[in-house]
């Protein structure tokens, strides 16, 4: 058998899961969709002595949408959010980015909360959480706390979750009126982790002038990176000059590394090109929403 032996618990409710995790906080791991954890176990890159399987905690399988944004639980699969119409009307960046998370078959099992707390800087949804300034609810035997995206990601595959804490819910803010979003990535094959990916949120005022531009990146830094590029558009125009300036700022700000898939220089160039693309697309999205009055 590929994984090393482990003890297995499958609680039926969150309270039981929290108690079990409190008792074994140092040696247990949470098993959500398993789409990142099981490969690590099979390659023996991880060998926890206990797994706490949360797949029976159906109370954590939901997508709730209201005017403020979208909340989903630890058992909500990527595919559930991708196909939730209300959620994507409130925050269209969810589907735009989820479509690039692995393949549909992986998205049927993997959870978005699991992906975010796995904190891979090459993953889409941690970058989306950072860009949208969302938050995560952490529960432990002792209580509950809310952590903002900027405080969640502390290093490669490392978060500020304490021992014994389960991420129970993620909140993604709704897209404000006059704003637009876009997502693009370059990967070697569809469904692979991206060589570089970028998302943008562009805010316009009722007259159509650009008031704020923020971008988020994957695969070009150790933790999900967000840049505020509003200064490049200080005349409020989405001109080619301003776009070029924004692309140059982004290329200079990312910290990519060379690996077998791409050189750092190539990723840096992609970051610049993708920055221009997503800002332009997000701006078009904002204009279309303003005219169409909807998504």
């Amino acid at each position: 058998m590929k994984p090393a032996p482990f003890a297995y618990l499958r609680p039926e409710c969150l309270q039981d899961a929290l108690e079990a995790y409190a008792d074994h906080a140092d040696d247990a791991k949470i098993l959500a969709g398993g789409q990142s954890l099981i490969p690590l176990l099979s390659m023996r890159l991880a060998a926890p002595t206990m797994l706490i399987d949360i797949n029976r905690l159906t109370e954590l399988s939901y997508v709730h949408t209201d005017a403020s944004g979208v909340r989903f639980g630890a058992l909500t699969r990527h595919a559930q959010i991708e196909h939730d119409k209300r959620a994507n009307r409130a925050q269209p960046l969810l589907r735009k980015a989820l479509r690039s998370v692995a393949h549909p078959t992986i998205r049927n099992r993997g959870t978005t909360v699991g992906s975010i707390v796995h904190a891979d800087a090459a993953a889409e949804m941690p970058a989306v959480l950072r860009l949208l300034e969302g938050s995560v609810t952490l529960r432990s035997h002792e209580g509950s706390r809310e952590v903002g995206a900027e405080d969640l990601f502390v290093g490669p595959l490392e978060t500020s979750l304490a021992a014994g804490e389960i991420a129970t819910e993620i909140f993604m803010p709704a897209l404000p009126a006059g704003a637009g979003v876009a997502f693009e990535e370059i990967s070697r094959r569809r469904g692979d982790y991206a060589l570089c990916g970028a998302a943008a949120i562009v805010q316009t005022d009722p007259g159509g002038a650009v008031t704020s531009v923020k971008t988020g990146y994957l695969s070009v830094s150790e933790t999900p990176l967000v840049l505020d590029l509003s200064d490049a558009f200080d005349d409020g125009e989405l001109s080619q000059t301003n776009l070029t300036g924004a692309g140059e700022l982004a290329s200079a700000a990312v910290q990519p590394e060379t690996d077998i898939h791409a050189t750092a220089d190539y990723r840096r160039q992609l970051a610049g090109v993708l920055t221009k693309q997503v800002i332009e697309q997000a701006h078009n999205h904002a204009s279309a929403r303003t005219i169409g009055g909807s998504q």
């Binding site: 398993g34 789409q35 399987d53 099992r109």
Partner: peptide, 13 residues
Amino acid sequence: GVPMRSCLMFAVS
């Protein structure tokens, strides 16, 4: 009825 990778699931689950 939903496609999933059987190499990325445990039988117990």
